[in-house]
């Protein structure tokens, strides 16, 4: 009998396969000719980057987003797919220390880059201060948006430190501060459908305070 994990994987594969089959059918009339004239190798590329300090090399379909490369190819499923269109922030990871939406960038565009995911920030027993603060302040309910929220908030505090202004910064020529208002605005790219926002702000404010 399948254990729950195997069951989960096979169900997911089934869903992915059937979605791909549906997409292939609908795209067929226009793209079939174009695709057969191109060799397999031109439509895939090799890319190497570091994920959480470890060098990874992939030969993948050019279309693979960084998000799908992390989740489906490298099996780092901490990073979540919410909308796949830049609208929710669940896929937030750091590239070269800067937060980005992994769903709106191609994996093959990251040759040589250093990528940090939630798995790299901290592990059970060795939590990053921001992870610990989210636990302490109950900064989540279902937890789906949480990896994105945490990666984003770690980067937000770095952005404030680097004196990057925000929409609510009153004086553009004064140093940026880590007020609750600033944190709320800077975190607006991370949607939480459970509405854990106030506890998320508390967690980030806590870390900002202890670091200051």
């Amino acid at each position: 009998m399948l254990n729950p994990t195997q069951l989960e994987i096979s169900r997911r594969n089934l869903l992915i396969t059937s979605a791909a089959a549906a997409a292939a059918t609908s795209a067929l009339p226009l793209s079939a000719a174009a695709q057969t004239s191109q060799t397999e190798t031109e439509l895939t590329s090799t890319v190497a980057f570091a994920v959480n300090g470890e060098r990874r090399e992939l030969n993948i379909d050019n279309r693979t987003t960084l998000l799908d490369a992390l989740r489906e190819h490298l099996h780092l499923t901490g990073t979540k797919k919410g909308c796949d269109h830049g609208q929710c922030g669940a896929c937030t990871v750091m590239v070269g220390g800067r937060r980005v939406n992994a769903c709106l960038t191609l994996a093959i565009m990251h040759e040589g880059d250093e990528i940090t995911t939630i798995e790299g920030l901290g592990q059970p027993g060795n939590l990053h201060p921001m992870q610990a603060a989210f636990v302490k302040h109950d900064g989540f309910q279902c937890g789906y948006c949480t990896p994105g929220q945490i990666c984003s908030s770690v980067a937000v505090l770095e952005e404030i430190k680097a004196n990057i202004p925000s929409h609510v910064t009153t004086d553009l020529t004064a140093p940026a501060s880590a007020s609750a208002e600033e944190i709320r605005e800077r975190m607006s790219g991370n949607i939480c459908r459970c509405g854990a926002y106030s506890n998320i702000v508390d967690a980030i404010t806590d870390v900002a305070g202890t670091r200051a």
């Binding site: 937060r99 980005v100 939406n101 937000v156 202004p165 925000s166 910064t169 553009l172 790219g189």
Partner: peptide, 23 residues
Amino acid sequence: VRRDYGLLSRALLAGASGQLRNK
């Protein structure tokens, strides 16, 4: 830009999200 073209900073910061503006 912040000092001499504040309008440009303000318009950029009013758009999208921190993650998107980084790219």
